[in-house]
Amino acid sequence: MTTRYKVAAVQAAPCFLDLDAGIAKAVRYIEEAAAEGAKLVAFSETWLPGYPNYIWLGPVAWQMQFVGRYFDNSIVAGSPQEAILAAACRKNRIQLSIGVSERDGGSLYIAQWHFDENGTVINRRRKLKPTGVERSVFGEGDGSDLRVVDTSLGKIGQLACWEHFQPLSKYAMYAQNEQVHIAAWPNLALYEGTAFALGHQVNNGATRQYAVEGGCFVLGPCALVTKEVQDTVCQGDPEKEKLCPLGGGYTKIYAPDGQEIGTSLPHDQEGIVYAEIDLHMIGYAKAAADPAGHYAKRDSTRLLINRQRQRPVHDFDVADRWERVEEPAPQEPKAKTPRHADTSV
């Protein structure tokens, strides 16, 4: 297993509502990161086909103009578009974590896909609980998605956006001895200056806290809003533009001790943030506090996880096996002892 290597977190605007263009742009960033020597590259939440900022900007009736296009440009597992990403990873010998709007049947999910350097998808996960009005667009994940995967680069896990404010979900990941974590965020310009909890100070604080609590390296890729994206979702409305300003890319990489490492970019500039990481640093961080190891208090608090994939329909024979109750075997009745009998020996 490689323990020292370069990682890359992409800060770029998506090709909003254009899946094929977004795939092509992602491939360019994959190639650029690999050319710079990175072994892992990470993209932001729903980078394909872009985060739907419009859901925060107006009533549902107004949003309907985007619904069809967003659905049609969401990616499907096993599709030709996925094959292009897989080929880029294989050609450039690089692992990829990318945030997508995943289309499955008639539903969409905020998902993160992890490709290894051979182009194989080694993890597909869905955001457990879409945040706020995201629930009007996306379905939910389940406990089977709280996974950390073993790779040639160590144990790598993923969560999206405000999943980093869910203590139990985080703890489930820490307990799997995660070494590198992808904290995928959308652009952090939305409601900037009017809702502090949605701003970069709080959200980057959550990313940094994850690194310290989990004793792991954390990549926090973040998209940004360009004039093109703003014009599409705000349609020249100055009030909407105040709620969805330009920029918002606050991509960071943190070490297990919480310090920011690597390069940096202005919040309105596209590019890649790089950092050199050394997994041996994790031992130093966890010597002080391993939250699911020696620093856990198992006799006081524990976490229960349902890791079963939740499905709305099961085959009849499967459901029948679940619902059938085995009848206890008949037993011979015990002989009754007379009430006043002498049973002494």
Score class of each variant (00 low, 15 high):
1 M>H: 14
340 H>Y: 14
99 G>M: 01
301 T>P: 04
256 P>M: 09
14 P>T: 02
310 Q>I: 15
305 I>N: 08
21 A>K: 10
117 E>S: 03
231 D>L: 01
31 E>P: 15
143 G>R: 01
293 G>I: 12
225 V>F: 00
102 E>H: 03
259 Q>F: 08
235 Q>E: 12
127 K>D: 06
219 L>P: 08
48 L>V: 08
129 K>P: 01
123 N>P: 01
320 D>M: 10
165 F>M: 02
310 Q>E: 15
264 S>G: 15
111 A>L: 00
173 M>K: 08
188 L>K: 01
265 L>H: 09
298 R>M: 11
328 P>M: 05
10 V>T: 03
102 E>M: 09
56 W>E: 13
142 D>P: 01
303 L>F: 11
296 A>H: 11
46 T>M: 07
195 A>S: 13
59 P>Y: 15
130 P>T: 07
30 I>S: 03
19 L>S: 11
321 R>V: 07
137 V>R: 04
83 A>L: 08
254 Y>Q: 01
186 P>S: 01
32 E>L: 11
110 I>G: 05
142 D>G: 02
217 F>V: 01
189 A>F: 04
326 E>Q: 12
170 K>F: 08
106 G>L: 14
295 Y>N: 15
313 V>F: 14
167 P>L: 02
234 C>S: 02
340 H>F: 15
127 K>T: 04
85 L>M: 06
259 Q>V: 09
269 Q>D: 10
281 M>N: 13
306 N>A: 06
29 Y>Q: 07
237 D>F: 06
15 C>W: 03
47 W>S: 04
293 G>P: 12
308 Q>L: 15
154 G>M: 11
222 C>P: 03
187 N>S: 04
333 P>H: 13
46 T>G: 11
276 E>L: 14
274 Y>D: 00
2 T>D: 04
143 G>H: 00
53 N>Y: 00
198 L>A: 11
4 R>M: 08
134 E>P: 09
20 D>Y: 07
66 F>I: 13
239 E>N: 10
131 T>A: 13
66 F>W: 11
307 R>T: 15
6 K>R: 14
127 K>Y: 09
254 Y>F: 10
98 I>C: 01
244 C>M: 06
107 S>C: 13
75 I>C: 00
66 F>V: 14
27 V>P: 04
111 A>V: 00
331 Q>G: 09
113 W>F: 08
157 G>N: 04
147 R>F: 05
273 V>T: 06
234 C>V: 08
150 D>R: 13
275 A>G: 00
303 L>A: 13
101 S>N: 09
203 N>S: 08
319 A>G: 07
318 V>E: 11
153 L>F: 05
345 V>P: 14
192 E>A: 14
342 D>M: 11
333 P>S: 15
261 I>K: 00
310 Q>P: 15
73 N>A: 06
292 A>T: 09
39 K>D: 04
296 A>Y: 07
320 D>T: 10
291 P>S: 12
172 A>R: 10
151 T>L: 03
42 A>M: 05
103 R>G: 13
344 S>F: 13
136 S>I: 13
190 L>E: 07
126 R>Y: 05
289 A>D: 10
117 E>C: 00
190 L>N: 05
297 K>G: 13
68 G>N: 12
169 S>K: 05
82 E>I: 08
168 L>P: 07
69 R>K: 10
288 A>K: 11
207 T>L: 06
105 G>A: 07
29 Y>H: 06
162 W>P: 03
340 H>M: 15
152 S>W: 01
174 Y>F: 12
195 A>G: 12
23 I>C: 05
158 Q>E: 08
